[in-house]
């Protein structure tokens, strides 16, 4: 099932994170104040955009913080990001919070947010992994557009329990190996629920692959 995810800050990191999550078919809402950025995001047609300041509780409510699964504060300002996460925790019980911070902190923020993204690794793929936080992880060190995903096959998903030869993946997909990385998969290998597989996917078909493996 799709998750509702709010991303505060539609700059480079926020935008690319939203792009990756939208490709996974998650339900993304971006909060952004700058009109030019908003126009660019709207052109990409990946997320609903709320125009305003993410530290304004009314704006957070408008973005649907009450029903959201996760909020990721990904602006360039550490203080603002932490404030947004703390506000969100106050406004919505049990929401997952992810904050982008500007220096290595050694767990200092762990009491306040569920995950932090550091500048050294501030790529959108890391942010997307931490924001989605389940079943699907992008392996970060890849050039170009192809996504190398580590996907855990969900119980009850269409591909669960089928052999690789039986499942017809969309063009632009290559199932490489199990997560232990010791075997290249063969057509007769069964996709076992609960196990993880490394899959190379072109961005346009990520959602279909996830529909097959995650349900």
């Amino acid at each position: 099932m799709t998750q509702d995810i709010i991303i505060a800050g539609g700059g480079r990191v926020g935008f690319q994170t939203a792009e990756l999550l939208a490709a996974r078919d998650e339900n993304v809402t971006i909060i952004e104040a700058d009109e030019n950025r908003i126009a660019e995001i709207a052109d990409a047609w990946i997320a609903t955009v709320i125009q305003g300041d993410a530290s304004d509780p009314d704006i957070l409510e408008e973005a649907g913080v009450g029903g959201a699964d996760t909020i990721a504060a990904l602006t360039e300002l550490t203080g603002l990001n932490l404030a947004v996460c703390l506000l969100a925790t106050q406004l919505a019980d049990g929401i997952r919070t992810v904050a982008r911070v500007d220096r290595e902190t050694d767990g200092a923020y762990d009491r306040f947010v569920d995950a932090v993204v550091y500048p050294g690794e501030a790529g959108a793929r890391v942010a997307a992994n931490k924001t989605a936080g389940r079943g699907v992880q992008t392996l970060a060190a890849v050039t170009g557009n192809i996504e190398i995903l580590e996907i855990s096959v969900a119980e009850g998903a269409p591909a669960a329990g089928k052999t690789l030869a039986d499942v017809s993946f969309p063009a632009g997909t290559l199932v490489i190996s199990g997560a232990d990385g010791s075997r290249i998969l063969k057509p007769e290998t069964t996709l076992t629920p609960g196990s993880q597989y490394v899959v190379a996917v072109e961005p346009g078909v990520v959602d279909e692959v996830l529909q097959l493996m995650r349900g």
Partner: peptide
């Protein structure tokens, strides 16, 4: 499985 039974996007 690049050439096996794939559908066009």
């Amino acid at each position: 499985m690049s050439s096996h039974d794939q559908r066009e996007p």
